[in-house]
Design a protein around this nucleic acid. Structure first.
Length: 227
DNA sequence: TCATTGTTCACTGGGTAAGT
DNA sequence: ACTTACCCAGTGAACAATGA
């Protein structure tokens, strides 16, 4: 049995990944560089991966790794201009690089929080390991989509006869079912089947329908706001 | 089980390196 | 092989309400 993450990515094609790479998306997205980094690389824009590559080439060419601890980079004048320190851990170096790189179009890097995004994500997972908490977190946004009022078609406004021209989907379904029960429109031999009276026929343009399909039939009666 | 929609979540991948 | 650090677009699943 594959872990969930593996399942999730079974559907993601290799071709698509290559397309993303080709057009410079994700990791290989081209970014704006700080003046210091522009001076170092000689170009105003580069993907982060390329910047890291160039940095390491420079470090090796100039023999800037600490011989006693090769994880430590001894900064020469050029690197000191970039990182503002005399020496830097190689892991810290990529972190320090963040303030020199930002998305194209932005005038400066976004503010860096005291904890990094990955750290924050990790922390979030650790703080909320149990399913109920995650579920509670999800409910917030999920509800908003369901409970949002949608503009109704003229036919539906006429059918409801309340003067309201916008209602949540769930509310409309509830009212349709109230109407069905009030008017005893369920087929006695199969209560899942709804026998339309003239009013329902006018709304849905069918003689009968399965109770399950109410929401499907209502689809055309909710007007989607323009994007 | 069915149908609807929008939001949230968890996850992946490329590149670099040394140490465990 | 994994860790550590950074970047982020894209993907699919889950979930919410409603009825019998």
């Amino acid at each position: 049995m594959l872990p969930l993450s593996k399942h999730l990515h079974c559907g993601r094609s290799k071709k698509k990944n290559e397309e993303v790479k080709k057009r410079g998306g994700g990791f290989t997205k081209i970014c704006s560089l700080s003046p210091q980094l522009q001076k170092f690389t000689g170009v105003p824009e580069l993907p982060r991966t390329e910047v890291v590559k160039q940095l390491w080439s420079y470090i090796r060419e100039n023999n800037l790794q600490d011989p006693s601890n090769r994880k430590n980079i001894i900064c020469d004048v050029t690197l000191r201009e970039l990182f503002d320190v005399d020496s830097i851990d190689m892991f810290q170096m990529t972190k320090a690089l963040a303030k020199h790189i930002w998305p194209l179009g932005a005038s400066e890097p976004p503010p860096v929080a005291s904890t990094t995004k990955d750290k924050q994500r990790k922390q979030d997972r650790e703080e909320e390991p149990d399913e109920p908490k995650r579920k509670a977190k999800r409910q917030k946004g999920a509800n908003s989509a369901f409970l949002a009022s949608l503009p109704l078609s003229d036919a539906l406004v006429k059918f409801l006869n309340t003067g309201e021209n916008a209602l949540p989907r769930s509310d409309v379904i509830k009212r349709i079912w109230d109407y069905i029960k009030q008017n005893n429109l369920q087929d006695p031999s199969d209560r899942r089947m709804i026998l339309c009276d003239d009013k329902l026929k006018e709304l849905f343009e069918v003689d009968t329908f399965q109770g399950f399909t109410v929401s499907k039939l209502l689809k055309n009666h909710f007007i989607k706001p323009e994007q």
